[in-house]
């Protein structure tokens, strides 16, 4: 504690020095994070990178195999299938989920009776997202004799077992992901409230209408949050695992139609005791996500507005 006070004092004294850069202050503020990075995160990450170059079954020592695991990946038809599934999943569900989240955040932001209840109710599915109960529930809704088909039958349409048909099972997973839009919705809500009211007041005085205010204040001021949600939901969706695991009974079925990349990786590592291969898959995924994120950041310069 006393060192913190000293830092404060010395920083004040060195007010001129601070103009050149805040290296020392940064080190102070980042100290917990650096400690976490080097003591907790870096070691296991480096270890997994090393293990990706080994044949490692978890039960005995890893043996160095060079690039073998990475080469095997390109000859693995299930891995290619899992990439297809994952890309479809990510690029369909993330935009839909964000659109739903933003739309509802805008509706629920304005003063209205029962807001707290609506917000909480809309968030509920996100609380259930990974529960084992979802497996049974999803069958009850999207099964051959499920709720959806009962509604369709009312209109004279004959459905199929959506959740267990290889052609449709992935769609039910996408719906599940969109349905749990609570997290981005909450972040949007917080973001909307972060926009200083003085901007709106100033705009009102200038005679700008609501729509004008929305496009010239709300939208630009919200872009950092939209950007955040986009980046994070992409990263999350690429690593999504629990929902597919629960709904498919653990194996990405039927016929690998819901074999998300991380689910396949998990099975390889723990069920098939091939952790070397799983580690290689993980680092390959990191490259994909990293590339995607980099593109996002580069593109953000053109549409994300920061107040600083």
């Amino acid at each position: 504690m006393s060192s913190v006070i000293q830092e404060v004092a010395s920083t004040r004294r060195a007010a001129g020095e601070r103009r050149k850069g805040d290296g020392r202050m940064a080190a102070l503020f980042l100290a917990p994070w650096f400690a976490g990075l080097f003591l907790i995160t870096a070691g296991p990450m480096a270890a997994s990178l090393y293990l990706s170059f080994t044949d490692y079954d978890l039960l005995s020592s890893p043996t160095w195999v060079g690039l073998d695991n990475y080469v095997r990946m390109f000859e693995d038809p299930r891995l290619i299938q899992s990439l297809k599934v994952t890309f479809t999943y990510v690029f369909v569900s993330v935009p839909l989920q964000l659109a739903a989240a933003l739309a509802l955040a805008l509706v629920l932001d304005k003063g209205m009776r029962g807001l707290a209840v609506y917000r909480s109710v809309y968030y509920l599915p996100s609380l259930l997202g990974g529960s084992v109960a979802i497996a049974i529930l999803w069958r009850q809704i999207f099964g051959a004799d499920g709720l959806v088909n009962q509604v369709l039958a009312f209109f004279g349409i004959e459905g199929t077992g959506w959740v267990s048909h290889p052609d449709y099972a992935l769609n039910t997973l996408i719906i599940l992901n969109v349905w749990t839009f609570g997290a981005p919705m909450v972040i949007f809500l917080a973001g909307l409230r972060q926009i200083p009211r003085m901007y709106y007041e100033a705009a009102s005085i200038d005679g700008a209408g609501r729509l004008r205010q929305f496009w010239s204040i709300t939208v630009p001021m919200l872009t950092p949050i939209v950007f955040f949600n986009l980046v994070l939901q992409l990263i999350n969706a690429f690593q999504n695992f629990t929902q597919a695991f629960v709904v498919s009974g653990g194996n990405g079925g039927p016929a690998d139609s819901t074999l998300l990349y991380t689910l396949y990786l998990y099975r390889k590592g723990f069920a098939d005791l091939d952790m070397g291969y799983a580690s290689a898959m993980a680092w390959f995924l990191l490259l994909i996500i990293g590339g995607m994120t980099l593109v996002n950041f580069l593109a953000s310069k053109y549409w994300v507005h920061y107040d600083d």
């Binding site: 020095e17 850069g21 290296g23 020392r24 080190a27 650096f34 400690a35 990075l37 080097f38 003591l39 907790i40 870096a42 070691g43 296991p44 480096a46 270890a47 090393y50 293990l51 490692y56 039960l59 005995s60 020592s61 890893p62």
Partner: peptide
């Protein structure tokens, strides 16, 4: 400032490397 920081960073990297070495040696523990 920067020298100081570099020193700290060196120590941190060393700590990370030590953690890694420890993990790897133990992965074949059995």
């Amino acid at each position: 400032t920067s020298i100081n920081q570099r020193g700290r960073r060196g120590a941190a990297v060393a700590a990370g490397a030590a953690a890694t070495a420890l993990i790897l040696s133990a992965c074949g523990g059995d």
